[in-house]
């Protein structure tokens, strides 16, 4: 069949594209309505966007980009917050605000890398275990998951990170290893209940392949809580990696990291309080932002678009 014949025999194709666009716009409106019903979600989203933009534009928006690395200016060391250094300076004279903004980069990068490995792995395993519920495959996957879940996450990450060389890469590996089982759990439950839905049975009875059933029929129905959890988890991954860097198992100096800044400053408490308080506040704000935005996402995906 030629292309000309197509458009002749299917005037609906044109109609379809317009309809798709129109429906997309309508759905976006509904999604935003569901999301913005809770004003705190909007605040969370604003925080998240601000942090992301600050991190991307760090060299432009910070007053002293050169302070992000190994920089020493003893004349300006240990200064309290002032007009030129709004969050003050550390014992080497580096601008704390600049270092916080730069450390957002590392924090977001960790979250991005950790989640982009942990989520697909966790989801895939959960999907398989859920669909083959009651078989050996289910037992093997889910008992392994249980083992990982049984160990307190921070301890596990500490153990792994301390066995390896302390650097950003290894702390990412450590956090990833403790993160995937949560996704396996969530998807497992969803997939196991989805498996008994009539639309899955209908696909099986008509002879669809396992791959089709897993990825086309079941997976799309398991994703809403996964997206919500991703949004909520960004904050927690950042917190865990900050904890690792607090005990010296993360990013190594002079590159700024929030946990490491808090722990450095802690030595000078309470005299140089700004060295600890502002990075700590930054951690709080990041986690708060992602959590609020995550709650909004949940409202949006769970009330659904009808």
């Amino acid at each position: 069949m030629t292309a000309v014949q197509h458009s002749k025999s299917r005037p609906e194709a044109v109609l379809g594209l317009n309809m798709k666009r129109q429906r997309f716009a309508e759905n976006m409106g509904k999604y935003w309505y569901a999301f913005s019903r809770n004003k705190l979600s909007v605040v969370g989203l604003a925080i998240v966007l601000t942090i992301v933009i600050l991190a991307i534009l760090a060299p432009v928006v910070t007053p002293y980009p050169e302070h992000a690395g190994a920089f020493v200016d003893y004349d300006n060391a240990s200064k309290p917050p002032s007009r030129s250094h709004i969050f003050g300076t550390d014992v080497f004279g580096r601008d704390i605000f600049t270092r916080i903004v730069f450390s957002f980069r590392g924090a977001l990068l960790i979250a991005l890398v950790v989640l982009s490995i942990a989520v697909p792995v966790g989801v895939l395993l959960g999907l398989i275990a859920g669909y083959f519920k009651g078989t050996l495959l289910d037992t093997v996957i889910m008992r392994t998951t249980d083992v990982f879940l049984a160990v307190p996450p921070l301890i596990l990450a500490l153990a792994i990170a301390s066995m390896l060389k302390p650097n950003m890469m290894n702390s990412m590996i450590a956090v990833t290893l403790m993160w995937w089982p949560w996704y396996t759990r969530i998807v497992y439950g969803m997939a196991a209940s989805c498996r008994n839905e009539y639309f899955v049975i209908a696909a099986e009875l008509t002879g669809a392949s396992k791959l089709h059933i897993l990825f086309r029929e079941i997976l799309p129905n398991c994703l809403s809580p996964v997206f919500t959890k991703i949004a909520l988890d960004v904050g927690w991954v950042i917190l865990i990696s900050a904890s690792l860097s607090f005990v010296g198992l993360g990013e190594q100096p002079p590159t700024p990291a929030l946990g490491q800044m808090v722990s450095d400053g802690a030595k000078y408490m309470p005299d140089l309080w700004w060295m600890t308080i502002f990075p700590a506040l930054a951690i709080v704000v990041i986690i708060l932002g992602f959590n609020l935005a995550g709650d909004g996402l949940r409202d949006m995906l769970e009330t659904g678009v009808k």
Binding site: R10, A202, A203, T206
Partner: peptide
């Protein structure tokens, strides 16, 4: 519950059409 809420009606009808009648693309849509 017998129609997958995450798939369009075109996709839902497409599955038996491709499995049992080997129809794809434009022929399937028709």
């Amino acid at each position: 519950s017998s129609l997958n809420p995450r798939r369009t009606i075109g996709q839902i009808l497409g599955l038996p059409l491709v499995l049992h009648r080997g129809l794809r693309g434009a022929a399937q849509e028709e």
